[in-house]
């Protein structure tokens, strides 16, 4: 084959490649022109039949032609592939505003959310969880907590008693767990919280016959009311923010003396006075005090040596304040329209 024929070969090849319109045709052209049975390989194979003086130049020319065609074919393939991908992607476009495949999501009860938050903060301050029975002895619910039979404080807590089970009742507060915890730990220092269900014969917009409390107790040598104050203030700041106004107010509970209630500045009106705080600018959060010596003795601690403080709050009340719930009964209806409000709304 002469040099002119290589040129002719090139012209024909380029013409054929140029005519290939799609990826398949390009690939066919590659097989035709560069394949093992193609004219270039053929020509290279037959170089040995040529006179020696022509062999070198012819070989160079043929190899150059093969490289050139290879480059052109690759380039064509690349652009055609890109073109086809572009078309596919255009075809695959979706309306991203159509709804996603929905997943049914569940979630916690607002009361459990409030409880979890209270527990988290109190654990951080150093308290451990203890639990006690909901059916409690009359003795631990009242007498052991310095509330004897005709004590006026029994009026404050209307009690459910049990049929055919004298001496037992539904606990009216989580405080009996204090005594149980003390009996289990005396004379070691103690920092416990007792969350749980309690019962009172009461049913209206703000009182539910079944509700939840969380109780805190610290006992040890040298525990004073200043420790109570710092603990409650730390707790309230963690819960309501570092600059929330706080005040302790003298109060009364039979199982603590002195007793105090903790008020926080109303988070709704910032102390201006509103419906939630009944215009006072303050919201009562919890009751507390120094554990009464009779209660310490019931718990197995010598009140001459040991002192302690206790506090308790209603979890319903905390949840109602935190999530703006105005009727406590909503918490116990199991109404999914209500329960699903506490996460992002369902689409």
């Amino acid at each position: 084959m002469a040099a002119g024929s290589v040129e002719e070969l090139r012209r024909q090849a380029l013409e054929a490649i140029d005519a290939a319109r799609d990826l398949e045709a390009v690939q066919a052209a590659r097989t035709t022109w560069l394949g093992r049975k193609g004219p270039i390989v053929d020509a290279l194979r037959s170089i040995k039949d040529r006179p020696p003086e022509e062999r070198r130049d012819l070989g160079l020319e043929l190899n150059r032609l093969r490289d050139e065609l290879e480059a052109i074919l690759s380039e064509r393939e690349g652009s055609l592939e890109e073109e086809s991908l572009r078309r596919r992607l255009a075809d695959e476009r979706v309306d991203v505003t159509l709804p996603g495949r929905p997943r049914a999501i569940g979630g916690p009860h607002p009361l459990r959310m409030a409880e979890a938050e209270l527990v988290r903060v109190l654990r951080k301050i150093g308290f451990s969880i203890v639990e006690g029975p909901e059916v409690e002895s009359e003795y631990l619910n009242f007498e052991a907590l310095n509330i004897p039979e005709d004590h006026p404080a029994r009026e404050m807590q209307d009690t459910f008693y049990l049929r055919d089970l004298p001496g037992l009742l539904l606990r009216t507060h989580t405080s009996p767990v204090q005594v149980r915890a003390m009996r289990a730990s005396a004379p070691n220092p103690l920092r416990v919280i007792c969350p749980g269900r309690v019962y009172r014969r009461d049913d209206d917009v703000t009182h539910s016959p079944v509700f939840h409390q969380i109780e805190g107790l610290a006992v040890g040598e040298g525990i004073g009311m200043h420790h109570l104050k710092a603990t409650l203030y730390e707790f309230a700041r963690q819960l309501f923010g570092a600059d929330v106004p706080l005040r302790l107010r003298p109060s009364y509970f039979p199982f603590t003396e002195p007793s105090a209630e903790l008020d926080v500045g109303c988070p709704f009106c910032h102390g201006q006075g509103c419906r939630v705080c009944k215009g006072s600018g303050w919201i009562e959060v919890l009751g507390s005090g120094m554990v009464h010596p009779h209660v310490l003795r019931e718990g197995g601690y010598d009140p001459e040596r040991f002192t302690g403080f206790a506090f308790g709050l209603g979890i319903e009340r905390t949840a109602m304040l935190r999530y703006g719930i105005d009727d406590v009964r909503l918490l116990y209806l199991g109404d999914l329209r209500f329960l699903t409000q506490f996460q992002g709304s369902e689409a």
Partner: peptide, 26 residues
């Protein structure tokens, strides 16, 4: 308690209690 009421509960200083060992939780 009467002393506290008379001097005012605002007189209470603020001091966190010393730590106590944690107990096993249920």
């Amino acid at each position: 308690e009467e002393v506290l009421r008379s001097v005012g509960i605002g007189r209470l200083p603020e001091e966190l209690p010393p730590p106590a060992p944690r107990i096993a939780e249920p």
